[in-house]
Amino acid sequence: MKHHRVLRIVSKLLIPFIMLFALYVQFHGDFGPGGGFQAGVILASAFILYGLIFGLENARKVAPPAVVTRLVAAGVLIYAATGYAGLLKGGNFLDYGVLGATPVAGQHLGILIIEFGVGTTVAASMITIFFLFAGRER
């Protein structure tokens, strides 16, 4: 779709805002609707839009598959590591209360970290899956 000038320019304008919105959804999920799952999908859709308009090769340069593939696993590891951090601090698995000075502060920190892990895995998985489908020759 490289010859569609309107699509190219409009998507160039849109992509930064899509990414910004994904970050907003990620970190505002504690107070309004949103969270890691939604943010991950929105962030992935920015990359997918880029891949659709500017071609898969360019998208692979922006988000190298080797890095994205590792991020899929990294998100799960961040989540699980937060659980073990609770264990090391003397609480139960995934008990965030012991992570901060007060239980509520700990909960805040724990939820922020695991939502980040969820967002990483979801975004990286969706980008990986899109790359694989789009890169398959007929």
Binding site: F37, G40, V41, F133
Partner: peptide, 16 residues
């Protein structure tokens, strides 16, 4: 909420 995201992951697997 979680079922929807898992649903799209399994849909992708089925399509693959």
């Amino acid at each position: 909420l979680t079922a929807i995201v898992v649903g799209v992951a399994t849909t992708a697997l089925g399509l693959a």
